[in-house]
């Protein structure tokens, strides 16, 4: 089934479907405009959206005439690493930012600065990321892991694209 337009979102409150089939997309797939994947019910969805369109959790991809049967996109986000930098003095802050940037770039990890913190998506394995961060033994830099759903609401579309888009 070719889907070229989003029909609405479950949060609109306008939908009272009797049957809901779900297309599950992870954080990487959710950034794509073009994608082919099976729904839970086995429907082959070929997504071809305009470049400006961004999928949101609960987007209705297909609905029958009365809206009784619908196919909904469910976005599933993994963890994000939040990094705090020291800010006591300008030199220390600059050194920490450069050292962290160098380490992150060395790993080819994408990153976004938001609300005074650096956000890095957990690409493969949290333990590996944690170990990389600890092995650098940064001074004054701390990190923790939070669910992606905790930060997605605060992210601008270009931030989400930078974190999870195909670059």
């Amino acid at each position: 089934m070719l889907v070229e337009q989003i029909r609405g979102n479950l949060a609109d409150g306008a939908w009272r479907p009797a049957n809901t089939d779900v297309l599950r997309l992870d954080q990487w797939e959710a950034q794509k405009r073009r994608l082919r994947k099976l729904t839970d019910g086995g429907v082959d969805i070929a997504l071809s959206l305009d470049r400006g369109t961004r999928l949101r959790d609960g987007d209705v991809l297909w609905a029958d005439e009365g809206g009784d049967s619908i196919i909904v996109a469910r976005l599933e986000f993994g963890e994000v690493m939040l990094v705090d930098l020291p800010r006591r003095d300008a030199d220390g802050a600059l050194r920490a930012a450069v050292e962290l940037g160098h380490a992150i770039g060395d790993q080819h990890w994408p990153a976004v600065v938001k609300g005074g913190q650096v956000l890095v998506p957990v690409t493969l394995d949290r333990e590996v990321m944690d170990s990389v961060m600890r092995s650098h033994a940064f001074t004054g830099i701390s990190h923790r892991f939070v669910p992606g759903t905790d930060v997605i609401a605060y992210l601008a579309p270009q931030d989400a694209d930078r974190l999870w888009g195909t670059r």
Binding site: K32, R34, L35, H108, T123, L124, T166, R167
Partner: peptide, 27 residues
């Protein structure tokens, strides 16, 4: 480059353990 659909290319001569070592391109 940034794309809608990604083809990741590795070569045999880099060693047959490359897929096991994983990485974003592999998975």
């Amino acid at each position: 480059g940034a794309a809608d659909f990604v083809v990741h290319v590795i070569d045999v001569a880099a060693g047959d353990r490359i897929p096991r070592k994983n990485g974003p391109g592999i998975s």
